[in-house]
Write a protein that binds this DNA or RNA. Sequence first.
RNA 1: GGCCCUAUCGUCUAUCGGCUAGGACGGAGCCUUCUCAAGGCUCAAAGCAGGGUUCGAUUCCCUGUAGGGUCACCA
Length: 453
Amino acid sequence: MKMENQNKEKKTVVRFAPSPTGFLHLGGVRTALFNYLFARQNKGKFILRIEDTDKERSKKEYEEDIVSGLKWLGFDSDEFYRQSERENIYKKYLKKLLDDGKAYVSKESETAETGRRTEVIRFKNPNKKISFSDMIRGEIVFDTTELKDFVIAKSLEEPLYHLAVVVDDFEMGITHIIRGEDHISNTPRQILIQEAIGAPKPYYAHIPLILDKDRAKLSKRKHGETVSLSYYIKRGYLPQAFLNFLALLGWNPGTPQEIFKLDELIRQFNIKKIQKGGAVFNEEKLKWMNKEHLKLLPPEKIASEIYTIVKTFYDTDAEYVRKLSPMILDRISSFGDISAIIEAGELDFFFKKPDYEKNSLKWKGDSDIRTTKTHLEYALSLIDKIADNQFSVDNIKNVLFGYAEQKGKGSVLWPVRFALSGREKSPDPFTIMAALGKRETLERVKIALQKIK
RNA sequence: GGCCCUAUCGUCUAUCGGCUAGGACGGAGCCUUCUCAAGGCUCAAAGCAGGGUUCGAUUCCCUGUAGGGUCACCA
């Protein structure tokens, strides 16, 4: 109750604060997502802050990867900052801390290691018990004594993480800190600094980690590129599906609904219902979810996406691929699968005449290929009677199905389908015929008949 | 190891103390079907253990166990 009253007065401000020392990864995406949903649902601000105080490890290409990843996801930030451009601000606070005697310049014993300073700025630890209420986990208590006088800056110009974070969160008016569970143990240090600079305590929400199959935190070291968002972008997943999947990894609406559009997530998201335990990332479910979102797309959009991929393999035109697209859609769970099925040869016969052994034409239930020949000849005559402009799946089926039922469906349809596709597994013959058109269909059946002689 | 967090089907999860423990993914089977894909139906599959509290615990408390996170002049 108290929380809600305070929120009425203060506009919600959250931030996603990645460090550009690696590509945007799954955990980061989900942290960004929860921050974004929370900001939008509270009509608040979503700030993107690049935490690049570590000059050695921060790289521009990583920052670009993060920014473009967020753009792909559709997370527009209201403000953008780079910590490397705010050193004068940290310096001001550092000086104040020094002047107030809350921090001090510490002479370090000489270590032969390179890069170690002889002087750093340490925070004077008041050695007290710190407690904070986490929106997801409830009360968490720490004794900060064990933290000792921790280092907050290498020098006045070189602040370290804890100092920069606290100063920025204060300066930017962050009301809610939503971040990964791995930051829980950082929280007491940061609260100590907050108290020292007179900053208010924001609300904290530590979200559970995304785990691998072994229930360990996803790491680049162990899993390579599969932890990067770009990997999933490359595999052809839809941003809306990816978001939906990540949102449900650790959160659920309490209803059976699983497929959400972004605006529904914004409306229904409830930070208090976030799970406490870590969740294992399961790509199988992502695939299923992507397919569900695929089916939600307008047919024209699907057709054009499929066309852009198919045309890199075959010399074809958009209109033809459009006819094929419902059939292709049935066989993929992401646009990335299209190349895979093409490479497996599953679509070849739509673009060139098939090559096969004549014996393959014979239905397994028939003993004599002359039966096959008879059926093909009759089918040919039936197909030939259909007018060019009537060559649709339904019409073809109507014309052919009676004969097939009379003579045995397998006995008739298998040879026809094989003559068209040259494959044991393929879409049904009517669909193939309608796609190929009458002329090509007739040609292929005639070729089959020539093979049999 | 210290500190902190967590604990329901293989996985994601529902359950405001009453449960024949529900749903989804994946799996199996069946239906549809010339084959494949898609689709439909059905089934298998879980409360970490031991103590409390309670008429009653998956739900609340304690202990143990297990898993995870974190212990930088990284973030």
